[in-house]
């Protein structure tokens, strides 16, 4: 019976943690996983990858997406800081953030170029060109869906 109580406590821990995640404004692991799975399905279909191409393509693509995530998160945090604390920050601090915006954008582009060079060796030219179109199409489809579901976030009033 004691074991049963312990298991129930564990269940409670898990669901409490899950609920806390849902209430927050950050992506849930499940939600992000699902979007990634959808993106994989979308790109695989659009590019019609063979098994050999997929074996090489996805590890490279995923690796660079992970690296780009770090840059994007930093960009988001900086932008959030500007939105919320523009009045409190000094001119120097704001300038530093603006400079960092450019540096991070450049880092993101560098990573894309690095990935592009690697993908050139594993994908034929047609599929490589189609990849960037598929990425944009996927983004559009997601946005369309967000609009249809009326889940677009309220625009934040600039301070």
């Amino acid at each position: 019976m004691k074991k049963l109580y312990l298991i129930l406590i564990l269940f409670a821990c898990v669901f409490t943690a899950g609920a806390q995640n849902k209430q927050g404004d950050k992506p849930t692991q499940s939600g992000a996983d699902r979007v990634q799975a959808l993106k994989v399905a979308f790109i695989t279909k659009a590019l019609d990858l063979t098994s050999e191409e997929a074996e090489k393509f996805w590890p490279i693509y995923n690796e660079y997406q992970d690296k780009r995530d770090v840059v994007r998160k930093q960009l988001q945090e900086n932008r959030k800081k500007v939105k919320e604390e523009a009045d409190k920050l000094s001119a120097d601090e704001l300038l530093k953030l603006a400079d960092e915006e450019m540096t991070l954008r450049q880092q993101d582009l560098d990573l894309q170029k690095e990935m592009h060079e690697k993908l050139k060796k594993v994908l034929p030219a047609k599929k490589l060109a189609q990849l960037y179109v598929a990425e944009e199409d996927f983004k559009k489809e997601l946005l369309q869906m967000l609009k249809e579901d009326n889940k677009k976030p309220e625009p934040v009033n600039p301070k």
């Binding site: 849930t28 699902r34 959808l38 993106k39 399905a41 979308f42 995530d69 997601l142 946005l143």
Partner: peptide, 28 residues
């Protein structure tokens, strides 16, 4: 290992799940 997704599953996506993929300006 997540089961491979199908395109039909593209529903009930929330903004917080895709914010890493899109720039806010894409929404306008």
């Amino acid at each position: 290992i997540r089961k491979a997704a199908k395109k039909e599953e593209m529903k009930n996506v929330q903004y917080k799940d895709v914010e890493d993929l899109v720039d806010e300006t894409d929404l306008y």
